[in-house]
Every structure is written in structure tokens, then in C-alpha cells.
Design a protein around this nucleic acid. Structure first.
Length: 423
RNA sequence: GGAGAGAUGCUCGAGUGGCUGAAGAGGCACGCCUGGAAAGCGUGUAAACGACUAAAUCGUUUCGCGGGUUCGAAUCCCGCUUUCUCCGCCA
């Protein structure tokens, strides 16, 4: 969430930036500022009261020691009376605090200055493109047909075992999953990312920490017996490692990578968008996460974008990078670049990665701070990106590399698959 | 799942109702000493919020978390979480 400081000190700027995300924050921010005043007034009064009580209580002890019973008794009643007022002040302070918190989490992150205007996906700006789109024959097959032809993925079996969106990978289809995961993890490690294997379920506190709660409650699978959530991305458990942590500036940027299965309910999508591997309830993904200083975080973001680009290049896929417009950005992000690869038989671009700088928005909720050169604690900036999500990469690989002999595996991947063609 | 024992600052560890935000030790930082270093000596070493815009200062809160008792709680009571040991079960 946004810091109270930013809201109270730069109100106009915050409102202007929120407008880029098409969020009208005027009313809610006015209310927050009001509550902040109430909170501070109550706290000042309460603190003064508590100070009196502390002083008096010490005197009671002193008087008791000296045997001055009656005087002690008198002070005692005085304290009891003073305490009466505390209940009211405390309720006022805590009430304001809580109400303020509830409002703060409803405000999205402010976008970076470079975020383009726009409401929809069509308004995103293409940053750059790479690779070449293959010329496929007329009878080229979409990946769901290829998956069936070569017996790589069984969607119907997944329906039988669980439900729609839970595919079963078989044979070379399964091995391709394993190969891609290992390939992505090795590449990240070579770039200095520490590999993490996190839990796939998190508690509510972690969900709040990264902003999935309360905003996207319905997108996560929720185990109500133990109140755990299945992770929609490894970002959640990995970033929460740094919840309530004060890092040393010399240890920044922190660079972590993690593979995990990801679980998303994705309610209400139908048609070609969800056909085959295009959208699933369970899928594999390797994530990269960084914690950095405010001064360096955009440099980090650039490095991450370049890194993801190197991955799609190694996989020889045609790609493009989009700078998301205000309306298409996520709630918590300040600047996001989406990576899309072209799936040549479906003839459409598929999003395979989203790389974002959250600035201090997540860190504020996480209380993830660092000690700067002056030994002062400051909020970190958090960043993350997919590197990469597997299903749509597989879709593009299958479709783009189909030949009459079979499906060719890109050279960089062959050491990981152990085969160079699917036939 | 059953029984027992714990949870104190960066770490170890003392502390069973009253100037205890917390002894002592270690670590770390700075200073003195030294040709340089070690040793030695000295000083410092939590966070959040408020007073106030910042520094200094002062106040409040925090000894796993949440309640309660009390004039006063790290210390007493209740609930929860969690760690360890033993038993059971299990990949």
C-alpha cells in the first residue's frame, strides 16, 4: 500500500498519478487524512495520560516502601480515575488506525511517470520486438492438436482426475516441462539469482503482504479448514521471506529465483482464450524476485527485462515487449513490461512474462526495510518477473517448430530434454 | 495425534510484581594505544508511533502473539502460535 507520508505530503501528486490508472482517489484520500488527524490527536492525549499513570504508579511503589499507606491509597484512586479516560482514547486511536488501514489497502499503487495513458490492452506500447515469425504451411496445427498427435498432453484425463485447466503431461510432454524448468533455473543461477524452493501454500498474512489479499481473494484457491491459500505464483512465498525484515544496504539488491507450480482460479474465462495451454488452473513457472534500494530499482527492472529477453532469444521464439498502460497494469505495480511470444498456428501473441517494479508499495505492507549509509531504516523496492511461465512457451514451441518430421527442440534446450525432436 | 519442556535485544544468556528497554558475555562499529596489527582500554550498538517540518530532545508502546488481574507485569492467570524431547503414525 501507499505510505501515509506520500498521501499526506504529496496529496495532489498522488491523485494525479492515480488518475493514470483511472482511479479516483479524492474521496478516499480525504477520509484517510481525516482519520490520520483523529489518530494523532488521540495518541497524543493517550500518551500524556499514560505518562501520568506511569509517574503516579512509581510514586505508589515509593510511598508503599516508605510506609505512607494513606498517600499511596490516594494516588491509587487517582490512577484508576485517569484510566477511565484511556479506554475511550484508545478506542478512538485504534478505531481510526484500523479504518485507515482498511481504506489504504483499497488504493492501488501509483504508476511510474513513464506509464502511458490508456484503458485497455490495445493501449499498451510496444517497446521492442525480436526473433522471426515462422512461415507455416496452411495445414499447420494448433498446439492442442499437436499435443494430441504426439501424445504429449492429455487435457481430458486432467478433467477426469480434477477438472478443466489441470492438464496431464505425458512422455516427452512431461520431460519438456522438466527440461524448461531446469533450463530457466540454471540460467537464473548463472545471473546471480539464489535458488529458493518455497512452500506452495501460504497463510493470510503472506497473501496480504504481496497484495493478493484482500484485492484478489477470489483468484486464489483457499483451504478454509486451515486458512491456507494455494500460491498463484512463487512471488508470494518468496517475497514474503522478506516480510518484517531489515536488510543491510550492502546486501542489496537481493536476487532470488524459484520454480513453483502455480494455482489460479481464473473464474469467468471462456472460448479461445482458454483453449489448450492458453489458460490453466495449474501451471509451472520460474519466477525471479529482487529487493532493491529506491535509487537502483529501475536499473534492476531493466536488467530483469533484458534477462527475460535473453531467455526467449535462446528459445528462438518471436517476441515483443509491451509497456503496459495505466488501465492494464496490476493493482500493485508501478511499472510493468509484458513479454509476449507469437504462437504461429493460433496466429496470436501470448503473454509469457510480466516484469514489474512495485517500488515501496509491497514493501510498505511487508515492512521490508533496509538500513542506509546513515543507519536510517527505509522501505525497500520490490520487483519480480516471470522467467518464464511454461504453458504458453510450450504452446509457441510446439506450433512454431512443427515440421513434417516432427517438432524440433531449440538448440539451447536439447541438453535439458535429452532429445532434439518430438516425433 | 498424545505427554513434557521452552520462546527475552544481532547472538548467547540473567531476570518470579515496582526507575528493567532490560544484568553479564560475545559479535559488530567508532575512538585511544601501535611503525602496522593483535591484545588492552574507552564509547556506542532495536523498532514503531506521537510531540514537530528536520536534527537534537522528550513521551508512548513492544521481552513469541492476543486477552485478563493489578496503582504498577518480561515476571501472575487464560487462549493461541511455534520450537525442542519422548511416544504413536507416515512419504
Amino acid at each position: 500500500m501507499l505510505t501515509l507520508k506520500a498521501i499526506t505530503e504529496n496529496t495532489e501528486e498522488v491523485l494525479r498519478k492515480l488518475a493514470v490508472k483511472h482511479f479516483d482517489g479524492k474521496e478516499i484520500i480525504g477520509k484517510i487524512i481525516e482519520l490520520d488527524v483523529q489518530r494523532r490527536t488521540s495518541q497524543s492525549a493517550l500518551d500524556a495520560n499514560l505518562a501520568t499513570i506511569n509517574t503516579l504508579s512509581r510514586s505508589v511503589g515509593q510511598l508503599m516502601k516508605e510506609g505512607k499507606k494513606e498517600e499511596a491509597e490516594a494516588l491509587r484512586t487517582q490512577v484508576t480515575e485517569t484510566k477511565e479516560n484511556n479506554k475511550y482514547l484508545e478506542a478512538s486511536m485504534k478505531g481510526a488506525e484500523e479504518e485507515m488501514q482498511n481504506l489504504l489497502v483499497l488504493i492501488p499503487n501509483t504508476p511510474h511517470e513513464s506509464v502511458p495513458e490508456g484503458r485497455h490492452a490495445e493501449d499498451n506500447v510496444t517497446e521492442r520486438t525480436g526473433g522471426s515469425i515462422p512461415e507455416l504451411p496452411e495445414d499447420a496445427l494448433p498446439h492442442w492438436d499437436l499435443a494430441k498427435k504426439y501424445d504429449l498432453i492429455d487435457f481430458e484425463m486432467g478433467v477426469k482426475i480434477t477438472g478443466a485447466g489441470f492438464p496431464v503431461y505425458k512422455g516427452k510432454g512431461a520431460r519438456l516441462q522438466r527440461a524448461l524448468i531446469n533450463f530457466f533455473l540454471d540460467c537464473a543461477r548463472e545471473q546471480g539469482y539464489l535458488e529458493i524452493e518455497p512452500p506452495y501454500m501460504v497463510n493470510a498474512a503472506s497473501g496480504y503482504g504481496t497484495g493478493q489479499l484482500p484485492d484478489k481473494e477470489g483468484q486464489m484457491y483457499h483451504d478454509t479448514v486451515d486458512d491456507y491459500y494455494l500460491i498463484p505464483t512463487a512471488e508470494v512465498p518468496v517475497t514474503n521471506i522478506y516480510r518484517d525484515v531489515i536488510l543491510d544496504e550492502k546486501d542489496l539488491p537481493v536476487k532470488n529465483t524459484a520454480y513453483s507450480a502455480c494455482f489460479r482460479r481464473e473464474a469467468g474465462s471462456y472460448g479461445k482464450d482458454v483453449r489448450g495451454l492458453n489458460r490453466l488452473h495449474q501451471f509451472n513457472k520460474v519466477e525471479i524476485v529482487r529487493i532493491d534500494t529506491p535509487e537502483h530499482s529501475y536499473k534492476s527492472l531493466e536488467e530483469m527485462v533484458n534477462y527475460v529477453q535473453s531467455l526467449v532469444d535462446k528459445l528462438e521464439l518471436p517476441w515483443r515487449i509491451l509497456r503496459l498502460c495505466g488501465g492494464d497494469m496490476s493493482f500493485t505495480s508501478a511499472l510493468t513490461f509484458d513479454f509476449e511470444v507469437f504462437s504461429a498456428a493460433q496466429k496470436r501473441w501470448l503473454e509469457v512474462s510480466s516484469v514489474s517494479n512495485f517500488e515501496s508499495y509491497q514493501a510498505n505492507r511487508l515492512k521490508c526495510r533496509y538500513r542506509d549509509a546513515n543507519r536510517k531504516t527505509q522501505l525497500c523496492h520490490t520487483l519480480n518477473g516471470s522467467a518464464l511461465a511454461l504453458p504458453r512457451i510450450v504452446a509457441a514451441l510446439l506450433e512454431n517448430n512443427q515440421t513434417p518430421e516432427g517438432i524440433r527442440i531449440p538448440k539451447a534446450l536439447i541438453p535439458y530434454t535429452g532429445f532434439d525432436i518430438i516425433d
